[in-house]
Nucleic acid binder design. Structure first.
Lengths: 261, 261
DNA sequence: TCCACTCAAAGATCATATCATTTACATCAA
DNA sequence: TTGATGTAAATGATATGATCTTTGAGTGGA
């Protein structure tokens, strides 16, 4: 139905018919993240009303949300200007999703991976000092389940357990911001899965390290928990790195011809 | 002019007359962050139209923004429900500001301080591997200026230099998300200043450590840069800790009777 | 007891009008 | 020529009222 602009590789982030607001927002957000609407470009409301064939209300509400994300700024007598990426709320989950679905995918992947590399070791350290008995037991149990799933080669299940494991650690750190961060990481991991960037046959090592982290936290050994998590992050970072070095140049259609499939 | 509800300790985050949208948004955001509108509470549009004496357009636009922050969810036939804090976008700068102006101030302070404790050392490490010659020189120069300001006892100037120093390090890390994080930290530091929670007579040690970080980064010694930043963070964390242990119980009017003044 | 139907409440969307601000341009005086 | 100043048009901001759509609760029959 829309083969006119052949640039957008992004599948719509919104399900199907999720309300006009959501659809217009998604379309504009994708366009901005994807660079089709470059910083400095000017829109105006009436133009958008025509383009999307929706009412002013819808457009204005969308623009307010985009403005709160830092994507645009409205000025009277001028119109609506796209702002440079330095103004964006790059921590907004919505933005993460859009960027993962755009050409900036790899940059987004790298940013978040670096972020979790920085945060999770400290979270593990804090968790060791704050976790409750039951939570600690659950954590060890989770690591065990991950082992089982890894051995069985059940990638789907392993992914979910992996996400849950890290979520629990961040939750136990007692810092709400860390937990929210995990939402972003989960976005990345599932996104990676969705875009078939998942050569993720879990290594023996990784399984052991998860177990180490869990054990160290349970025994309230903050330093060891941090150290184990650092290793885990180094491994995850290495995996990611191989990914974006592999697909660094062919920016265009990254998720089509992956030869090893 | 508004002495009716005596609970809100929060000064409006918006200047004065910044448009109806901004004012209503600020008021609702503050109320939600401050707990006056508890999770589960139900609003409806017409009620808000009456309460704020603005049009439906304004209210709807505000609600869309609040929804994108994760503060509310609108359901037909029910109304607009306040969501629990676990749904909030705690990385939204606006949210940070609201929370710093509310009773949850100390929790917010702690969260962000922990976050930067985790991130900045890694950022310093990355910066050592990526920074350009000129940027590195500037960084060393900044540390020197901080020394001068610290010696001269110019707290205002020191604060600005401090913020700028950390911003430069995060910028040099080459990770956009780290830079945005610094905006949050700056929000905290200036907020701390604004709320008179600033017993911040910079220690001799801290000055030296800033110099160490700058030097290590310039010499591309990632490990040493990280280590120096860790020490810096430990010191900053210690300062903060003494703050919120001091004012932990008297939640009510935290910024009135600080005896040591 | 339980399922299907009906109705009304509330948000979602639309259409139109008016207000307010700001930029561009023209006008006029020095 | 230049600079100040006033004026008009463009555009977002706000207001208003109507209609559409969804959905929860009540109601009645099997």
């Amino acid at each position: 139905m829309e083969p006119s602009s052949s640039e957008v590789a992004a599948a719509p982030t919104v399900p199907a018919e999720a309300g006009l607001h959501a659809r217009v927002l998604d379309h504009l957000g994708t366009a901005i993240c994807g660079g089709e609407l470059a910083p400095g470009a000017i829109l105006n409301i009436d133009e958008l009303v025509d383009r999307y064939a929706v009412s002013r209300s819808v457009v204005r509400e969308v623009l307010r949300v985009l403005a709160s994300i830092g994507f645009i700024e409205a000025r009277r007598r001028v119109g609506v200007m796209i702002l440079p990426a330095s103004e964006w709320n790059v921590f907004d989950p919505q933005v993460i999703r859009w960027r993962l679905a755009s050409a900036g995918r790899m940059a987004q992947l790298r940013s978040i991976t670096e972020l979790r590399t920085a945060v999770e070791p400290h979270a593990a350290y804090l968790a060791a000092g704050r976790i409750g008995h039951d939570e600690a037991s659950d954590l060890v149990g989770l690591a065990a389940k991950m082992w089982a799933a890894g051995e069985a080669g059940d990638e789907e299940r392993f992914l979910h357990l992996d996400i849950e494991f890290h979520r629990r650690v961040l939750l136990a750190s007692g810092n709400e911001m860390f937990v929210r961060l995990q939402d972003l990481v989960a976005e990345v991991l599932t996104g990676r899965h969705k875009h078939h960037l998942m050569p993720h046959h879990p290594h023996e090592q990784a399984l052991q390290m998860h177990a180490d982290v869990a054990q160290a936290i349970q025994r309230r050994d903050g330093a060891r928990a941090r150290q184990a998590m650092v290793q885990l992050m180094e491994q995850a970072f290495g995996e990611m790195k191989s990914l974006w070095e592999q697909i660094s140049v062919p920016e265009q259609s990254a998720d089509r011809g992956s030869a090893t499939r």
